[in-house]
Design a protein around this nucleic acid. Structure first.
Lengths: 152, 152
DNA sequence: TCCTTTGCAGATAACGGTTATCAAGAAATA
DNA sequence: TATTTCTTGATAACCGTTATCTGCAAAGGA
């Protein structure tokens, strides 16, 4: 079952996050736990505002600052991937916290994470032609998702 | 001679920009002309502030707003490529105003534009695996440029 | 040539997501 | 229990960009 697989992966991601937080002796407050769960469980690359709204359903007094600070913590631990956009509409990926290509719908903003084979070759080609030592990348492909192609 | 080739390319780019501006019946003010020249002549992917400082050497009363408005005009004409970054350090490419891969030095911020062969294949692979209709992309590779590798 | 219209330049206020600051509270440590 | 350290929540500050407005200058028509 696909949903079972996903559930297992999410649980595994949460455990990974939790052990990293504990290993570095950061405190595991209820607010942090809630934010970690949201990030581990979401496939939708949520915004800070999305996360903030979700946390508030469980902890209504949570501040936006807490969300920002928890995300900063996870970035430091390399447990979340930040997809920053110039217009400020940043998104977060707690499931695959390493650089990978994205397909981004220019209309509904849905983001997909396909497995792509030839990224390493491309990275190597960049290294050869520029002399740069490539350590990470950001690969975004923009267009219309299948749903938005149908309804114009 | 490499410099001659580059000079010719820059001149050709400037002419291209000028005719686009004229075709659409936008006025060619001295400030606009200066900004177009800067963009056509620069290989360094300047920031708005860079452009602003350069224009002011010729027209000291130029306003930042004029730089922003001229860039907005060129974006509308697809005659400049905006490389927006989430931290606000945006850069502009007046020489190659179409999507292409960049190598970006994380230390000195130097940007290179190598010719890469396999971008179309990658785009096609994205299309196949996501169902998105890819219309443009943004491909950034980050690392240390040759100069910054030498001096630690 | 004069006049009207339109567009542009310059100055500055407003905007908005993020970061910094700080007081109050809670958890760890002694 | 006392003390230290960390975290939360609220809000001010930040800063590149955008919006607004006034005055000016070029284009086009009588």
């Amino acid at each position: 079952m696909k949903n079972q697989e996903r559930s297992l992966r999410h649980e595994s991601r949460l455990n990974q996050m939790l052990s990293r937080v504990r290993d570095r002796h950061f405190r595991l407050t209820p607010q942090r736990m809630a934010i970690l769960q949201i990030l581990a469980n979401s496939e939708e690359h949520p915004t800070v505002e999305d996360i903030y709204q979700q946390v508030k359903t469980r902890f209504p007094t949570t501040s936006l600052a807490t969300v920002y600070k928890t995300i900063a913590l996870l970035k430091e631990l390399d447990e979340v991937l930040e997809l920053g956009f110039p217009d400020g509409s940043n998104r977060y990926d707690g499931n695959r916290p390493y650089p990978h290509p994205h397909a981004i719908c220019t209309k509904c903003k849905k983001i997909m994470d396909p497995e792509i084979s030839s990224v390493d070759e491309l990275s190597e080609e960049m290294r050869q032609k520029t002399g740069y030592t490539i350590s990470f990348h950001r690969l975004d492909f923009f267009g219309l998702c299948p749903e938005c192609q149908d309804k114009p």
